[in-house]
Amino acid sequence: MTDTETHVALVCVQNAGRSQMATAYAEREREARGLTDDVVIHSGGTHPADAVHDVVREAMADVDIDLSDRVPQEISEDTLESCDYVATMGCSTLDLEADTDVRDWDLPDPHGQDLETVHEIREDVKARVGALFDEIEAARDG
C-alpha cells in the first residue's frame, strides 16, 4: 500500500450479491476514470456464500458484466481498517477505527428476489458507486 493509493472496501455478509455488483461497477468506474493505479478495490463478506447468487449473475449479465468467475471471499478486519472508504450494503455491524470512512448503503438483499427487483437494486448500486468515485476524485484532486 502506498500513500498515493486510495483503498475502498465493498462489503456484505455473504459477498454473493450486493458487494459483487458494487465491486464490478467500481472496477468499471476505476478504469473509466483512469484510476487503475490509484484505487485499490477490496470486496468480501463476513460469512461468504459458496457462490454468487444466480439472480445477481443474471442481472449483471443484462448490462454486459460477467460475474460467472467470481467467488465470494472473506474480508478481514485488518483489511477493512486499512481502507480509506468502506461501504457496507445494508448489514453493517462494523466498528472500525475513526480514520476509516464507513457508510452503510442500506440496500435490500437481492437473494430470493425476482429479476426486476434485482435490476432496481443493481441500478441503485451503480449510482452509489458512481457517487463514491466522484468523492474519491474530489478528495484526490483537492
Rank of each mutant, 00 (worst) to 15 (best):
T2V: 09
T2Q: 13
H7M: 02
L10G: 07
L10N: 07
V11A: 04
Q14D: 12
N15Y: 03
A16T: 14
S19G: 06
M21N: 01
A26N: 10
R28N: 13
E29M: 15
R30N: 08
E31I: 07
A32T: 09
A32D: 14
L35P: 00
L35D: 02
V40D: 07
H42T: 03
A51P: 00
V56S: 07
V56W: 07
R57P: 06
E58G: 03
A59H: 01
M60F: 02
V63L: 08
V63G: 05
V63D: 04
D66I: 02
D66H: 02
L67P: 10
Q73P: 07
Q73H: 06
I75C: 05
I75W: 02
S76R: 05
D78E: 13
D78A: 14
T79Y: 07
S82K: 08
C83K: 12
C83P: 12
D84F: 07
V86P: 09
A87G: 04
T88S: 12
T88P: 12
C91I: 04
C91Y: 10
E97W: 02
A98C: 06
A98T: 14
V102P: 04
D104G: 06
D104K: 03
L107M: 15
P108T: 11
D109S: 06
G112R: 11
D114Y: 00
T117H: 08
E120G: 09
E123K: 10
E123P: 10
G130P: 01
A131G: 01
F133N: 08
E135S: 04
I136W: 08
E137T: 14
R140L: 11
R140K: 12
D141G: 00
